[in-house]
């Protein structure tokens, strides 16, 4: 076997992950398939696609986010990015009324909401999260409280809506993997592919950003530009996953932690796809277990939160014990 080139990303680790995801997908589709086969299959393909898109988006977003914040405990969800997205949705309904919102085509609406998210999250990032970059725990706590603040603000804004408008927004604010609009799914799928492509293109710069802001600037990285690009990608990925199923806080933490462990590399060209594959696989495996094996409905997100919370606690205490 020729010696591996130490200067280039080693993508071999992605192969088993991709195989695992394919296997899971096949199992998910074929398990206990009964007549009417075509109907059930269509249903399952839709669900499969939404699970994969959401898992991949959150996994990739978390890796990028953790590099930009130089902190492996944070996820976009913990800091309240998804809450921010729901808040923006609510605010738009509040400002323009539900009827106007219903009249706008979903694609345009999604783009507008995602653009707002990018702008607001950039402002928050530079104001709050960057300032405390030296003090990791303070930054994490600030992020968490920010998330609570945004969720509070959202439910406050929701109360200002008419009951009928309230219903429109509330649909978006509870994670559910069961009912997903196919048009939204198509938009989300295409966005995901574009965003992942952009993330891979950005990967070498993210590698450099992983050295820390100071050092990265020293070796010639335009750090502010990378933060802008990376954070925009994160916002886009969070927006699409939230638009699909609603907020999922801790999934990204699990996916990213596993990706670092499994790949043992710092190269984003490997880490980002790995986290995406793992995120998708977790959701798929979880949904399969809950729905097919245990016969339970819609409790997956709760369990993911539960386990993710435990992982977070573990990482936090281990880090502090050092």
């Amino acid at each position: 076997m020729p010696l591996r080139d130490v200067h280039m990303p080693d993508r071999r680790r992605l192969i088993p992950l991709a195989l695992m995801l394919t296997g899971l997908a096949a199992l998910f589709l074929a398990w206990n398939l009964k007549a009417p086969v075509e109907f059930i299959l269509t249903l399952r393909v839709g669900k499969l696609a939404s699970l994969v898109v959401v898992g991949a988006a959150i996994g990739a977003a978390t890796v990028i986010f953790q590099t930009l914040t130089e902190n492996r405990l944070l996820t976009p969800g913990i800091v309240g990015f998804d809450a921010l997205f729901v808040f923006i949705q609510t605010a738009l309904v509040l400002l323009f009324g539900g009827s106007v919102q219903a009249a706008i085509p979903p694609l345009l609406q999604f783009i507008a909401e995602a653009a707002c998210l990018v702008a607001v999250s950039l402002a928050l990032f530079t104001l709050l999260l960057r300032r405390g970059a030296g003090d990791i725990l303070r930054m994490v706590l600030t992020g968490v409280i920010l998330g609570i603040f945004l969720r509070g603000l959202t439910s406050f804004a929701q109360r200002l809506l008419d009951p009928s408008e309230f219903a429109i927004v509330q649909q978006a604010s509870i994670a559910s993997f069961t009912a997903v609009n196919s048009q939204v799914l198509t938009i989300a799928g295409v966005t995901l592919i574009l965003a992942l492509g952009a993330a891979l293109w950005l990967a070498p710069s993210l590698d450099a950003a992983g050295l820390g802001r100071q050092t990265a600037r020293g070796i010639g990285l335009d750090h502010d530009k990378v933060v802008l690009a990376g954070l925009s990608l994160v916002a886009l990925l969070v927006a699409l996953s939230t638009a699909l199923v609603g907020p999922v806080t801790f999934l990204g933490l699990i996916a990213a932690s596993l990706a670092y462990r499994f790949c043992g590399t710092w190269r984003h060209a490997v880490l980002i796809p790995a986290a995406a594959l793992i995120g998708a696989a977790i959701l798929l495996a979880g949904q399969f277990m809950f729905e097919r094996l245990l016969g339970l409905q819609s409790s997956l997100s709760v369990v993911v939160e539960f386990l993710g919370g435990l992982l977070f606690l573990f990482l936090l205490l281990r880090r502090s014990a050092r």
């Binding site: 590099t67 130089e70 902190n71 492996r72 590698d207 992983g210 050295l211 820390g212 100071q214 050092t215 043992g264 710092w266």
Partner: peptide, 8 residues
């Protein structure tokens, strides 16, 4: 200060 988060 040469704190590096990534494992290089």
């Amino acid at each position: 200060s040469d704190r590096v988060t990534a494992r290089l």
